[in-house]
Design a protein around this nucleic acid. Structure first.
Lengths: 357, 357
DNA sequence: CTGAAAGCGCTTACAG
DNA sequence: CTGAAAGCGCTTACAG
């Protein structure tokens, strides 16, 4: 080729990264214009916009989000704090929230609390410091203090999977009472007459209390022929489920329950494993089910019947509510309480009736 | 009580949030001193420190992390981008990374890429804009361009579950070849002689290629009596696994494989479900196993033998390497490549030999 | 150990 | 549509 030996020299990697002022200089415009191209491209003429964009990519400019948020007074990101990422329900929540946020060109910052209220507090504080545009919170238990603090800084909060019981905050919840009811009714329909509910000993854990109430309603509805029994464990782990399993096995076959509901799948999974270890047949001697559709509860030797919570739906609805509240800062926003219905998921661990197999 | 009616008036909630300058004024010190209390408490006398802390909590001051990061030139947070949070292996990675970071008083920002290379790019860009102190990246495939960009801004990167093959970056990887080998050897030991490997059609997915190589090594090692067959699917979903299942079922029993390895648990789970639907016994007619210990693969009617990847270990080691690189900015840091060995997890889907039951 | 001051890299009225 | 300038809330040498 006859072209002169002029070639694009690769930018020196050790050179200082380009800043907005460098872009402005390079494009021959003011910093304000570059900022507009970044934040309100429609307010800039097409020609200027393209010139600025060319400079941006040529210089490899990446805007400093910290400076941007500081100057704008608030970050564009949204914080999401969930109870525990090891519970797949909350991964679903994150997915749903993420997708909805992305459609609105917003980023979501994700944090899991590992079932630890103190860690939850740290996560909320962190997002508070980051001055997120909004906070989606799936709390372990009553978190009024944490919420008030964040809100006083002008950050809207939407609750997920927790009913604050007050009208001054949006929430998206699962009907946990109904979840318990579905579980109880299903076992009764499978012929169980001695129902055991494995819950926790901390009544402030709202979903646990509600699910128990639902199971009781199903039992009551059936009349006096069904017995109800509740065991309260200090935590909701697989280990606790196995512990209950040992106690149940130690009883005579006639006094054992014939249907067991773990308030979480994890708990139910631990129970099932212990049954297998003790040579007690699931579902024939004892039908077992979980109650939160945690796909992480894999290790059961039989597949676990459970109640699906539609986590993704929760995340989507919550994010939609939050985005609305952010857009309408206080005034035109009406706090809502959205209830998502749970659903029975049939699997092997309760399949006593031939037609269910 | 004879005390005067002086009581602590609750701070007006509508008042402007306290800033560092307010704290300084309230405590009667300069802003620099407040900043020191926050960032280098040991450089301040105990008395001053406590006075400042009292003012901080009395005023409900929460430092603005954006301003802080801007002034300091870099955020204190660390970014973690994983391939997919729906794969529990990566939740484990996040857990491990989180715990290690927390011990070092660092926050980690978590993002999942949903198996989407474009989303991965967005996640990396986001952390780049946030000027994170370091980036832990579990990439889908070669991401040299993304990495170079971030690094040019002075942000150290450590790779997880991906072998960059170059000595200029730290990485923590699973020995995927060994994982494949363990899987292959296990099936052969279980008596399988016609092994099928279900993989993907994208050779740039490193773990897939390595696991296949490992399976082949096991087959080769056993001599010519074992047949090897590979199926390449466009994606690694449950649906693809079921599709392969249908094809296998359509063959005559004599030409079918008697041992199947899904390169992911998800793939294997889909295959198993299809076997059950087709009334082909797992493990007796066909033994099946997965290869990444994804606890999210719950829906299998028999529990799935798989290879554990020790995700938490990966996260911990990766974060440790990254923290070291951050602390020793370039000079005293030596790039390392840590290999974590995988491990066979026996379950029902390959239990053909009585002693394994 | 403490204080005064410059500066981090943007955004946003404001005026043209 | 574009530009000049003030300011966002901190941190960090620097001097005392």
């Amino acid at each position: 080729m006859g072209a002169k030996a002029v070639r694009t020299v690769p930018r020196d990697v050790t050179a200082a990264p380009a800043k907005l002022r460098d872009v402005a200089r390079h494009a021959g415009v003011s910093m304000g214009t570059v900022s507009h191209v970044l934040n309100h491209p429609d307010k800039v003429s097409a020609q200027t916009r393209e010139r600025v964009r060319a400079s941006i990519s040529e210089l490899g400019f990446v805007r400093d989000a910290n400076a941007s948020s500081l100057a704008a007074g608030r970050s564009r990101s949204i914080g999401l704090v969930v109870i525990d990422l090891a519970n797949s329900m909350f991964v679903d929540v994150a997915l749903g929230a993420q997708n909805t946020a992305r459609a609105a060109r917003r980023n979501v910052l994700l944090a899991g609390s590992q079932d630890d209220f103190e860690l939850q507090g740290e996560n909320v504080d962190f997002f508070d410091e980051a001055r997120v545009a909004g906070l989606l919170l799936a709390p372990l238990k009553d978190s009024a203090a944490q919420i008030r603090k964040v809100r006083s800084r002008g950050c809207p909060v939407v609750l997920i999977n927790y009913d604050a019981g007050s009208a001054d905050v949006c929430s998206v919840i699962v009907d946990n009472e109904q979840a318990g009811y579905l579980a109880g009714r299903h076992l009764i329909e499978q012929g169980c007459r001695r129902i055991m509910f494995i819950g926790g000993d901390d009544d402030s854990l709202q979903p646990v209390a509600h699910r128990r109430d639902g199971v009781k309603r199903a039992v009551r509805e059936h009349g006096s022929s069904v017995r109800f029994e509740e065991v309260r464990m200090p935590d909701l782990t697989e280990r606790s489920g196995a512990e209950v399993g040992r106690r149940v096995a130690a009883r005579g076959p006639d006094t054992r329950p014939d249907g067991v509901i773990g308030v979480t799948d994890t708990l139910a999974a631990g129970f099932v494993e212990e049954m297998v270890a003790q040579d007690i047949s699931v579902p024939h001697e004892i039908a077992v089910m979980g109650c939160d559709h945690n796909t992480a509860a894999i290790s059961t030797p039989v597949t676990l019947t459970t109640i699906a919570m539609h986590g993704q739906r929760l995340g989507e609805e919550g994010m939609t509510l939050l985005l609305d509240e952010i857009a309408n800062e206080g005034d035109r926003h009406l706090h809502q309480r959205i209830v998502v219905e749970p659903e029975l998921v049939l699997r092997g661990s309760t399949a006593r009736m031939p037609h269910v197999a």
